[in-house]
Write a protein that binds this DNA or RNA. Sequence first.
RNA 1: GGUCCCAUCGUCUAAUGGUUAGGACAUCACCCUUUCACGGUGGUAAUAUGGGUUCGAAUCCCGUUGGGAUCACCA
Length: 475
Amino acid sequence: MKVRTRFAPSPTGYMHIGNLRTALYEYLIAKANDGDFLLRIEDTDQKRYVEGATDIIYSTLKTVGMDWDEGPDIGGNYGPYIQSERKNIYGEYAHKLVELGGAHYCFCSKDEADEEKNEELNIKFKDPCKLIPLEEAKKRIAAGEPYVIRQTINKKGKSKYHDEVYGDIEIDYDELDEGVLLKSDGLPTYNFANVVDDHLMKITHVVRGNEYISSTPKYNLIYEDFGWEHPLYVHVPPVMKDAQHKLSKRNGDASFQDLVTKGYLPEAIINYIALLGWNPGTEQEIFSLDDLKKIFTVERLNRSPAIFDITKLTWMNGCYIRALSEEKFHELAKPYYNDMPSNIDLKILSKTLQPRVETLGDIPNQTDFLKSVPEYDLELYSNKKMKTDAEVAKANLPSILETLSAQSEWTNEHLFEILKGLAEKMGVKNGQILYPLRIALSGKETTPGGATEIAVIIGKDETLKRIKSAIQKLD
RNA sequence: GGUCCCAUCGUCUAAUGGUUAGGACAUCACCCUUUCACGGUGGUAAUAUGGGUUCGAAUCCCGUUGGGAUCACCA
């Protein structure tokens, strides 16, 4: 049987990392087995619907390269793929389930149901409507009385099922709630829609958060009542913000889009989250999506929650940035070169920046001094190792200015040789020339590149200008 | 509270009864070096806890502790 998985988000806002990871695992299970990955939009709760949310889902999946084989936009043999468009299907199956004895009509209001149960005393809602004869219930419905369809659970004893990650799960039928399957607005709840759709769409592996572990027996009951075979279950642990809290939209935790905006590469994000809860069993850590497709197995999925560690993602992102071609990096870096002086050769700048940034978002901070030298303290000229300070700078900068003025070949290699020669001639250490020069040109303690590299980037005119003003400042 | 799930360095994880408990990030030191990075070398750092089973336990069993999930006309 062909493996088929589905990503079934509800369009309630942006894509958070946990969500994306679930989608990734679903995608990988399908693709590792030469199967189909489908996209289904679960929008049965109109109250929570957020405009534009489906577009974010589409664009995110496309950006990371997780192409779906069937979905709302491209169709397929099992559509429609938007649940609100499947209303009639659910209605039909829900009434059928009532006939089969797996559900019943309920006329209680939500408040009545809430009143009857008591969480502290652990009293569950016992639906009095269960006792209404089916014929009478149908008459009331025909008379226009509002109703919902609730699951009927009469079984006793232990419900058992196997989860591909957590192993055998056993839950007492008494623990199960007779939840609403079809709401009074005629739309199904997740509890019902996921079963009907997963069956109709021939889903073989249901991958979802482990918060569904304890409600899965309810779904299995529905599968049984219909005489359907249930899918394989792959429950995955949550992605956490810290030891206590899940990563969540509500707390404004980083979404995929936020990370991209901060200068993280989609490939790095995918690589990192794949490893949050899964490992290949080898010591390799860098994987493209195509690599993952080849080696992913559910057996190596983890059971315990994983904390999202931005520091490690940042490191990994740095690896991806360094692996980029010069051209590609330059292209990605360009948007971050806002109001850069026009005389600057951005290609050379990109080349020096590439090994020095871990995210593209680092670029503005690293390059701000190119526009103008920031205010700095003369203490900056002090460096023990280089045996230099403001006095040394004051003494050497004029000769540096004179030497550089005379140069026409404005390349890193040439300037470096010339300045080394100058140091030798003056009988001082290289650092006593280069360090003060770098400070004079940048006004910063750390810079992307050494003195001559910066000189080349800002150009000869600007270099001489900055040395002059540094000399003034030292006086 | 009932039920279910989880528990190895700070973090992500490897080790499916026999390892000096391995790797990666972070951190520290050193090397490289015109700063900073990159790169290289090395260090610090973990089996929550108490019992059992076994010649032998991170690994199997039970208890304890800690954490999480669930108990919606949300998914």
